[in-house]
């Protein structure tokens, strides 16, 4: 936000993205704001279909063919990524911004050796191929692949899922990008591997000093890994702030409901897991007023007519889009 003194690395402002699907226009993202400062880890949480992956893809210019950026800007290192040509975007990809994908089993090319793939992504560097190979082997060692040199000539299917995700993370960090986008990197892994991969990400982030945008629907990993959290609902950012504030003092009713549904938080044994009643609104015709109104236990008359502004909540740089905070905001101002 404007009151911030630190420089921002990535600043998404008022980003709206539409999807064209069977004649209908889905407003998948609406007026999304996101700030990432250098070296910080920002988590994006929300349920399936809330637009978190769309947001992540838009940052690296890999939106599906039927998606269109309707408005807004994605400022990154002095350029607006939303306005770059394909060629200009390709210059940013893999060098200043890189990405780790959800499913390590399909993310690597099955018929090209790991070494070849790691050498190919260094194609911009003026290094000898022996040097590129050495750098690739070193990265494999860094991400904890034993016997790195000989494993360079192995194919992806000769590695386990956890190993493959380590390789993907290594590849993403190979060019020492300023920003790493991790789109649910642990969702396809089992719980023990998830812990290992999160630990690895945290270590590497400290070593390389890059910022990370970490997309997840797993609140536990977000709480453990991230510095800041952005909570998304139905294509809108409903709340954002420091990880401590979000988890201790959730201010938006959706965040509160989401935290209550986290199985890790249930204290008394129960046969039924808690859920948020209702379903996501129709994104082809988003309702007037607050997007969460229909499922909100605290909704009142104003929520039906007026979309809530970005109100300040308790804590530094903690903001939420809920009318309940209106009074508080005025009180602190």
């Amino acid at each position: 936000m404007s009151e911030m003194t630190e420089t921002t690395l990535l600043s998404v402002h008022d980003l709206s993205i539409d999807f064209f699907r069977s004649g209908a226009k889905l407003h998948a993202l609406r007026h999304v704001d996101l700030e990432v400062r250098p070296g910080r880890i920002v988590g994006i949480v929300g349920e399936s279909g809330c637009g978190k992956s769309t947001l992540a893809s838009s940052l690296i210019g890999l939106l599906a063919g039927n998606a269109e950026i309707v408005s807004g800007s994605i400022e990154f290192e002095g350029q607006d990524l939303a306005r770059l040509s394909t060629r200009q975007m390709r210059a940013v990809r893999g060098r200043r911004i890189s990405m780790v994908f959800q499913d390590p089993m399909t993310a690597l090319n099955p018929v090209v050796t790991i070494g070849r793939q790691m050498i190919d992504i260094q194609y911009r560097e003026k290094r000898s191929s022996a040097e590129k190979r050495r750098i690739a082997a070193e990265m494999l060692r860094t991400v904890g692949i034993p016997d790195a040199e000989s494993r360079l000539s192995a194919y992806p299917h000769q590695f386990s899922g956890g190993m493959r995700q380590r390789i993907c993370i290594g590849m993403a960090l190979l060019m020492e990008p300023a920003l790493l986008i991790a789109d649910e990197p642990t969702t396809a892994l089992d719980a023990t591997l998830e812990v290992q991969v999160i630990k690895l990400l945290k270590e590497l982030q400290q070593q390389f000093g890059c910022a990370i945008v970490f997309v997840s629907h797993h609140l536990g990993t977000v709480a453990e890994l991230c510095d800041e959290v952005v909570v998304m609902y139905a294509g809108e950012v409903v709340e954002r702030g420091a990880v401590r504030d979000i988890f201790r003092k959730p201010s938006h009713p959706y965040t509160q409901a989401l935290l209550e549904c986290d199985p890790a938080r249930i204290k008394t044994p129960t046969r039924e897991l808690p859920t948020i009643p209702g379903t996501l609104p129709d994104l082809a015709h988003p309702p007037k007023g607050c997007i969460f109104r229909e499922r909100c236990p605290k909704a009142f008359a104003r929520c039906e007519v007026e979309a809530p502004a970005d109100y300040a909540a308790e804590g530094a740089e903690h903001r939420a889009r809920c009318h309940l905070l209106d009074g508080k905001a005025r009180g602190t101002a």
Partner: peptide, 26 residues
């Protein structure tokens, strides 16, 4: 449309390289 082609694009590889050395073989 496969994930590995998406990943290759995320690394900024040129379409030519993606097609000829990564996709055509399959």
């Amino acid at each position: 449309g496969a994930n590995h082609v998406r990943m290759a694009r995320a690394f900024g590889l040129t379409e030519r390289r993606i097609v000829f050395s990564y996709a055509l073989k399959i």
